[in-house]
């Protein structure tokens, strides 16, 4: 396959950035999207150009490090798929592909397609945990958990923190990310003592980071590679409102 790539290039936070066009030849349909970019970068290095910087690590869809907006869709149009697991067989020969970084003020561009997502860590710091120091835990069987609750908690807990939800949201909201963690812990007995304080602290931190508010458009869940459901946000709202009643 031969492709035309329009890639966002930005040398650093101070640079305004621009789209740059590259041609890539002899792309195999079995390549992953990132392998296609590897091929481009190998060429750029040899030609003495600066290769396109992008984040990636596990390349098996679980670490959450990779992510780019491909043809206007976070992680590309293939549903439930991270960028690293997207394969070139889903593109037409001769196609033009636009590639942009996640765009949100709380995710400033570091370089090219690399953005700073440390805001997510700070949201977790605000309360995305159960306060239980190592060594103090009771026996694992001392508190039974309904299977349905454990399963739903797991569904929410599969969030990989990639930030696609923010990238896709017309408001640049981090609600799905924040709600996934709140829901995971809110559904389990272990998460109860800190449930409402957690929701309040995390939501307030989300605001402080400069993310937008949720307007329930559903764009986030549509691009989420793990399919985190939208009702996690309802649960977050419920816990949050409860916190403010007290």
């Amino acid at each position: 396959m031969n492709l035309t790539l329009k890639v966002w290039r930005q040398s650093g936070p101070a640079d305004a950035g621009r789209m740059v066009t590259y041609k890539v030849q002899d792309v195999s349909p079995d390549m992953s999207f990132l392998e296609m970019l590897d091929v481009l970068n190998e060429r750029l290095i040899i030609e003495g150009d600066d290769p396109v910087a992008f984040d990636h690590d596990c390349r098996e869809g679980i670490c959450g490090m990779c992510g780019m907006v491909i043809n206007g869709v976070a992680h590309g149009e293939q549903r439930a798929t991270t960028t690293c697991q997207l394969h070139m067989r889903h593109f037409e020969d001769g196609a033009t592909i636009t590639i942009e970084p996640w765009r949100a003020a709380p995710f400033p561009v570091v370089k090219d397609l690399v953005v700073d997502r440390s805001a997510f860590d700070r949201i977790i710091q605000a309360g995305g945990f159960v306060s239980v120091p190592a060594g103090s835990a009771p026996d694992a069987h001392s508190v039974p958990v309904r299977k349905e609750d454990a399963d739903s908690a797991f569904d929410a807990a599969t969030c990989i923190g990639c930030g696609a939800c923010v990238a896709a949201c017309p408001n640049g909201s981090a609600s799905l990310f924040t709600a996934a963690k709140i829901t995971h812990l809110s559904l389990l007995p272990q998460g109860q003592p800190e449930r409402v304080t957690r929701a309040k602290a995390m939501v307030d931190q989300m605001d402080a980071e400069g993310f937008g508010g949720c307007t329930n458009t559903g764009e986030c869940t549509a691009v989420c590679p793990k399919g985190i459901p939208l009702d996690t946000i309802a649960r977050m709202n419920s816990d949050y409102l409860q916190a403010n009643k007290k």
């Binding site: 239980v132 069987h141 039974p144 399963d151 807990a157 389990l188 272990q190 998460g191």
Partner: peptide, 22 residues
């Protein structure tokens, strides 16, 4: 054995059976 206790207390959603046990 302590690891499992610790992880459960942290809210790690291990697979469970219908009786609610791991």
């Amino acid at each position: 054995v302590n690891i499992i206790d610790q992880a459960v207390a942290q809210g790690v959603p291990f697979a469970r059976e219908y009786g609610g046990l791991l």
